[in-house]
Structures are given as C-alpha cells and as structure tokens.
Computed example of a mutant assay.
Amino acid sequence: MTRLIVAAGGGGDAVAAAMLDAALHGNRDDRAVILTYAWDRLLVDPVAGPRRPADFTGLHRLAPGVISVPATAAPVPPAGSTLPRLAAELPHTFVLIDPSDGVEGVTAGLHALVTHLAPDSVDLLDVGGDILARGDEPTLLSPLADALTLAACSRIDAPVRLLVAGPGLDGEIPADALRPRLGARVLTFGPGPTGAVDRVLEWHPSEAAAMLAAAARGERGVCEVRGAGLPVPLTDESPAVHEADLGEALRRNRLAGALLTSTSLEEAEARSREICGSSEIDEERERSAAARRLARTAPELDRDAVLEGLDRFESEARARGATHTSFRRITEVLGVPGPARLALRDLLLDARPEQYAAPL
C-alpha cells in the first residue's frame, strides 16, 4: 500500500501526520508519504514565510515536480527548517509543498505526487480545525497555509479525506464552534501513537502537536499558549480525529475560495489582506525583525533569574486558571530568543522535572 497524508499547515501537522499513520497502521514497513510545507515558527526559522526548494541544499527529486527533503538536506542560512531533522528521526518520506506559484503551483505539485505514487488513500490533516473556518475570523492567526492546501486538494482528480485532529487545540477556533462542522470520529489517539513522535516533540516548536500528544497521554486541564496567553482546554475530545466534508469546508472558507486560481504566493498574500485584513507573512516579517534585534542584545541565561521569572509566571498563570503551558509560551514570557531555547529546555528539565507532562 501507498498512503499520502497532506499536512494542511505544515509544522505540527506534519508531526501529527506521523501520529496518524502510527494510529491507523501501526509499525508497518510501508510508512505514509507526508506532503508538507517548510514553514516553521521563528523559534526555528528567522526568515518569514515558507521555504522554497532554492532555500535548501541536498533535496531529492523523486519525480518531475516532486521534491523530497531527506535527512541530509539543509536550509541555506539564515533560513531554518525542521524538515531535515524530521526526516532523520521519523521513517516517513517528506515531500515539499512549494506555494511560490499559488494554488496553481500547489495543485500541480500534488497532482505530480499522486501520479507518481498512485496512493491507495489521500488524507488532508489539520490539527485544531481552523481549516473549517471562514478564513476571516479575528481569532485566526495562520489561515493562509491551510487555505492553499484546502483549495489545491479540492482540485485534484483523486478522492481526498479531510481530517481534523484535536478540535480547538490551535487556540484559534473554539471546539464548540467547530463541533457542528465535524463528521464522524475516525479515531481517538492514545499513548501508543505518541510514541512514534516522542523524540521529535522534545525539540519541535509546535504547540498544537504538543497538546495533542499530551492529551493522548491523558493530560487534562487548561494549557496557556503563545502570545497573549491563550487558554486552550485539554478535554476528552482533544485527542480525537474527525472526518469533515471537504466540499463544505471549501464553500465555507472564503480565503480558500478566493485562492483557487492564484498563481503566486504574492497574489495569495494580497487576497489574504483583502479578505482577512492582513497576511500572516507580513506579521512574521515584523516579528522576525524584532527577534533579530532581541537576539543581538540577549544575555546568556541566568539560572536564578530564569527560575524566579518562572515562579512569577506560574503563580500568575495558575490565577488565570491554567494547569499547563507550552515551552514556546515560557520562552516568550521569559524573553528567551531562539538561539537560547535549547539551554532553557535543559535548565527547566533539570530544575523542575516533576512538572514535565511530556511535552508540556
């Protein structure tokens, strides 16, 4: 069998795709091919927007229009990417989504991959469920990537199953709002499938994938995540995977509909600004510039200062009703730049091992 999983937004969706493959098919030798963006958070990639093939060395050409990212690939500095390390630590083949030519280009690449693989199944996977949004909700932070893949998957001549894992876990559209848009429950993750990505979640920055794995292991409560400290409930529904109607999702998603004939990423950004009022890549550009300034001035970690800051944050977060937090949230609260994040993680695991509810 050959199976194709399209990681709708890249990043954590690619990690969740490995969990999905493990849950559905166990440890079989014929692992799924995962089609994903190289579009990482600024903790990993200081350059705004998705990476394109020219941003890597060592890519592998599987077929015309089909480029995979092997473990030996490397991003061209100053860009960064989690994909080569994912390829090194997971037994899947990771194929690159290149949105340079808009939905037209993503569709062409997806068609070439389906033609090359002739897969028995094609799943489009989104963690959190914001792919089911209209695309213009004020709480949405990253609608563009999902809209591009949703539009492209609607155009290929192959059946595509749309799956939503962990409704509400991305902190953008609440689970209650998504529930009427969800179809049958396909499965509920347990601790077993998370074992497939244990090592990855020790370093990968995705908060949604981290919460999905923690919920699958039985963690319940409220997790405080990025930015303003969004509270995300961890409930019995959090480890669930539901099917949703792809056609309905496309009709509902105004941004995806507007991108159907787009021929460049710049055009897609312009339509996002018209419909959503902004482009997430513009916001990444602003945060990237701020992060570069911080990195130039950031001192080395002071253990006592870090632990004092953590105590203050913990007290305040508990008062807000939080029971868990993400590593990314801690880096933001303590003002720790990307280059120092590994030292911070080591410090936290050494000083507070009893508070580690992997990977939260």
Rank of each mutant, 00 (worst) to 15 (best):
P50M: 01
L4H: 02
R328K: 14
D346Q: 12
R285D: 00
L144Y: 09
E237V: 14
A87V: 15
D136K: 08
R345P: 10
A118R: 14
A249I: 05
L201K: 00
P159I: 08
R31T: 14
M211P: 02
R41G: 14
A22I: 12
T325M: 06
D123M: 13
L140G: 10
H242D: 06
P339F: 06
L150H: 02
I173N: 00
V200R: 00
G49Q: 02
P339W: 02
R293T: 15
L265G: 01
D236I: 12
D45T: 00
T235A: 06
T57M: 08
L125P: 00
G102H: 04
A258N: 07
F327S: 13
P84T: 15
S100L: 00
V69A: 00
G80D: 03
T325Q: 12
D55E: 05
A23G: 10
A291N: 09
C223A: 14
A54V: 09
S315Y: 11
D101G: 01
E266F: 13
A147F: 05
L132T: 05
A145C: 12
H242Y: 14
P337F: 05
G105R: 04
S206A: 13
I281F: 02
I5G: 07
L178V: 10
R287T: 01
R293Y: 13
D21C: 05
G335V: 04
E207A: 15
G247K: 12
P70L: 07
R292W: 10
A118C: 12
L342F: 14
V200I: 09
R251F: 10
D198W: 15
A87C: 09
T36N: 10
E308L: 13
S278T: 15
A240M: 10
D176P: 08
G171T: 08
L163D: 01
T325F: 04
E269N: 07
E207H: 01
R312Y: 06
V6M: 11
T82G: 11
E137D: 08
D45E: 00
L259E: 05
P143L: 04
N27H: 15
P180N: 02
P64V: 10
W39Q: 07
N27K: 14
T194V: 10
G12C: 03
S81W: 01
F327P: 14
W39H: 09
P337T: 01
G135Q: 12
P353E: 06
P205R: 04
L90Q: 04
P359S: 04
R345N: 13
G9V: 00
R61I: 13
L360D: 03
L259C: 04
D136S: 09
V200H: 00
R52M: 08
F56Y: 07
T107Y: 14
E237C: 10
S315T: 15
T325S: 11
A8H: 07
E89F: 05
E237A: 12
T297P: 14
R185L: 15
G338I: 02
T331A: 15
F56K: 03
L234E: 01
A158P: 07
G12H: 05
D45M: 00
A240C: 12
P193G: 03
E266C: 11
A151M: 07
R251E: 15
E137Y: 03
A290L: 10
G192Y: 11
D29W: 03
A158D: 06
S272N: 00
G168F: 07
V114D: 06
G11W: 02
P75M: 03
A175G: 01
P167Q: 07
P77D: 04
L259V: 07
D346G: 12
G227V: 09
